[in-house]
Design a protein around this nucleic acid. Structure first.
Length: 564
RNA sequence: UGGGGCGUCGUCAAGCGGUAAGACACAGGAUUUUGAUUCCUGCAUUCGGAGGUUCGAAUCCUCCCGCCCCAGCCA
């Protein structure tokens, strides 16, 4: 696993770890420790899921227990094999192992059915014939208790018969459900005789047409946990109200054990949206280019953007786990990214917006010279490479200013700068087009400064990145920025898509990158010196048509200063 | 106005009766062939508010205020 830093160290404590550590110390669960990551295969994973993944797999690793990857596939209406596949690939990419076996709630359908029968026999569940609307009516409201279903006291034998016939497909969708018999007057609405099985004559991605009744989440989840010997069932805050039901079910049924459900706050990031529905809207309405659009917080998206698993893992560790609802600054995520990329990304040079520079005193066009460049100035072990210098080179347009202020440490008429790993050059002349745009610079170089050092000890304020005509190839570059302008895009109740940043993607053509980059592997991070971290796009880049995605910029204090 | 949660620096977040960790951000400074990195320095007399208990409270008690979640045959 490639990591640029020791992430095992300094793992933060949180209340969940404290509980687990205490349980282990007391010898609870015979000293076992098992968690699970239970996604429903009805969409793509996003960075919010990464928090749960890192938490569940992380504590398992740390306490020498295990974490099961279990698909909560109880609703064939929404689920699909393609989601199962993408989730598996995302979890793997994040760097976690789930052992030999992947678990599926659907593998427990037979046992779940038996547990339901057990509940019926105990008089703790009944088949209810209320319609969905009637049921809503009978449920009561937040402030008023519900009414009992007329079927609530149906005899056990009849319930058993009806449930069996539900299973055999004798009834249409919606005609009957199986309900737990708890308390219609409970202040907790989840306890007002919740539905635990419904009829859905629908093919399931895994069990195909074997079933036409499917268990509900509440019934399935706790029992699945128990069947797997899960000790700590970690979930998000909205399930707190379900905990009494989770516990009731496990108490009433002959489950092998009784896992402890612990809730934590889900992750929110500013300048983005995280809900499945909203992400879907962005994709479907074409605001972005698919689920793996590099601007999306999906795992597939940030991966394509160039984020590394190590950075994400570190981020999840840094933000901690608590029960407080929060919105984390993406800056924190970007910082974790830079921290990792700074260690692992080789340095190269690329000019995004080229300005031609002719070296007046260079012998002649076509004569080239090879110079050494370090792949990572702080890590000589990463080696060096050759870069080509010649009479015609290109620098970043922004690195030249005709009427430059004193603090501008770059090129300007009469000023001298260093071209990284090459020579000092001095700007002698500025060539403009009819509109007055600067189109070319005429400079001289100092042959004594080869490599970038001046033998006479002469100092120069700025060092520019550059590329030569012979040493570069054209490329397209996608400049990605935050997808939304608003910190909380969904704050106003009207259309959140109105907050989309029109410049979240700026496509650049005519960029020039070092020849070295022709073989850039997709998703592999490179630092384009002085610009940021980039990677070749995994979907569209090719040797003949290079496309780089900007993963994140370098910290830029000059930009901050110059704006003032 | 039923029930369940949550409120510690701009953003996360430790703290669990002994006198406010850390990270990011921010502000200074040093080093630098990336205005990057790295390295120093500073940054909550105060923990939603008000009372109370205590020698001592962010931590315990009371009341109040604010925010989030729940009325799917979704998860």
């Amino acid at each position: 696993m490639e990591t640029g830093f020791i992430e095992e160290e300094n793992r933060k404590n949180n209340f969940i770890k404290n509980i687990i550590a205490e349980d282990l110390e007391k010898g609870k669960n015979n000293g076992n420790m098992i968690t699970r990551f239970p996604p429903e295969p009805n969409g793509f994973l996003h960075i919010g899921h990464a928090k749960s993944i890192c938490l569940n797999f992380g504590v398992a690793q740390e306490f020498k227990g295990k974490c099961n990857l279990r698909f909560d596939d109880t609703n064939p209406a929404k689920e699909d094999q393609k989601y199962i596949d993408s989730i598996i690939s995302d979890v793997k990419w994040l760097g976690f192992n789930w052992g030999e076996k992947i678990y599926y709630a659907s593998d427990y359908f037979n046992r779940l059915y038996d547990f339901a029968v057990e509940l019926i026999k105990k008089g703790k569940a009944y088949v209810c014939g209320l319609t969905a609307e009637e049921m809503r009516d009978y449920r009561g409201t937040l402030t008023q208790p519900g009414k009992e279903s007329p079927d609530r006291d149906r005899p056990v034998a009849e319930n058993l018969d009806l449930f069996g016939r539900m299973k055999n497909g004798e009834f249409e969708d919606g005609t009957y459900v199986l309900r737990a018999k708890i308390d219609m007057a409970s202040p907790n609405i989840n306890m007002r005789d919740p539905v635990i099985y419904r009829i859905k004559k629908m093919s399931h991605p895994r069990t195909k047409d074997a079933w036409c009744i499917y268990p509900m989440y509440d019934f399935t989840h706790g029992i699945s946990d128990a069947l797997e010997g899960v000790t700590h069932s970690l979930c998000t805050l909205e399930f707190q109200d379900h905990r009494p039901l989770y516990d009731w079910l496990l108490d009433e049924v002959s489950a092998p054990c009784h896992p402890q459900q612990i809730e934590f706050a889900r992750m929110n990031l500013n300048y983005t949206v995280m809900s499945k529905r909203k992400l879907q809207k962005l994709v479907e309405n074409g605001h972005v280019d698919g689920w793996d659009d590099p601007r999306l917080p999906t795992i597939a998206g940030i991966r394509r953007r160039g984020y590394t698993p190590a950075a994400i893992r570190n981020f999840c560790n840094i933000i901690g786990v608590s029960k407080k609802e929060s919105r984390i600054d993406v800056g924190l995520l970007e910082n974790c990214l830079r921290e990792d990329l700074n260690e692992v990304a080789p340095r190269v040079m690329a000019v995004l917006n080229p300005l031609k520079v002719t070296i007046e005193n260079w012998s002649e066009a076509g004569i080239t010279e090879e110079l050494d460049a370090l792949n990572h100035p702080q890590k000589p072990e990463m080696g060096k490479r050759k870069i080509v210098f010649s009479k015609t080179i290109y620098i970043e347009h922004d690195d030249f200013m005709e009427n430059a202020p004193k603090k501008f440490f770059r090129l300007a008429p009469g000023r001298e700068v260093r071209l990284r790993y090459a020579y000092f050059i001095t700007c002698k002349d500025v060539i403009k087009d009819k509109e007055g745009n600067v189109v070319e610079l005429i400079c001289t170089y100092d042959p004594a400064t080869r490599g970038g050092d001046s033998p006479d000890g002469r100092k120069v304020k700025g060092t520019l990145h550059w590329v030569s005509q012979e040493g570069s190839v054209p490329a397209f570059v996608n400049l990605y920025d935050r997808l939304f302008l608003a910190e909380d895009p969904e704050a106003e109740n009207d259309d959140f898509t109105k907050n989309i940043n029109p410049e979240s993607l700026v496509r650049l053509e005519g960029c020039l990158v070092e020849n070295y980059l022709v073989d850039a592997e997709p998703e592999k991070a490179y630092q384009f010196e002085r610009l940021g971290y980039f990677c070749a796009d995994s979907k569209e880049s090719s040797k003949e048509h290079l496309i780089f995605n900007r993963t994140v910029t370098l910290r830029d204090t000059w930009a901050k200063v110059s704006q003032k």
